[in-house]
Each structure stands twice: as structure tokens, then as C-alpha cells.
Amino acid sequence: MKKRFGKNDVIFISFLILFCVGVCVAVYKGGAVEGSNISITIDGAEYGTYSLLEEQIITIEQEGHINIIEIKDGEAFMKEASCPDQLCVDQNEISFDKESIICLPNKVVITVTSDMESDLDGIVR
């Protein structure tokens, strides 16, 4: 029986590490579930749901605040916003399920939702 660390072990462990990294990449990049819609809420209230498949520009106006959301190539992003910090405009485009862009000053939240939603939200033990 082999007792100490040897060449085989180095090969085997490298293989395992590669396997782990491979799975990580596969799940977080390829395996991530593409969302199909975005849902917009303003101050917690539902504003509307828009398909990510249609290219469109959504303008939200509320009490002098303006947010312009653009959907392009299946991704949504904040094109323009009247908020002072512009953090929402700087955020990357979203397309995967549960990703979101939040404009805190204007209280606008955009979340990607998916039709493949499971009927279980969680499990309580």
C-alpha cells in the first residue's frame, strides 16, 4: 500500500482541482439560468414586467425622477437616471435569473425573473 505523497497523488489532486474549477466555471457561467423577464418595482410597489426578448426602452417618470431602462440583446441596463449618485447607470447589464439593478435614490428596483420558477420557494425544517 502506498503511504506517502507521491507523483500519482500530485496528478490526482491536480485533476481534482481542475475538476472543481471546471464545475465552478460551468455552473456560474454556462449553467446559470437565463431569465426571461424583468420586473420593475418602485418603492416596493409592482410597476410592470417586460420581456427580455423584446428590444425596448422603458421610461419611468415619477415626481420629477426619471429612469430610462433599455433592453437590448436579452440584457437589461439602466441607460439614464436622474439620481445624483448614478450608481445604477454604472451597474452591468443583467440577464440571469435573480440579478438586479437597484436605483436607491429613486427607489427603482429591476429584477430578472424566469418562467422556469419552481413552485417551492424554500424548505423549512
Partner: peptide
Amino acid sequence: TDLLCPLSISIAGGI
């Protein structure tokens, strides 16, 4: 297989 030391086998076991 008798090729690996207990450490490597344990790692595989952990995963």
C-alpha cells in the same frame, strides 16, 4: 487501485 496515498483518497472522499 493502490496508486494513491490516504490524503488524496480522503480529498476525493470529501468531494
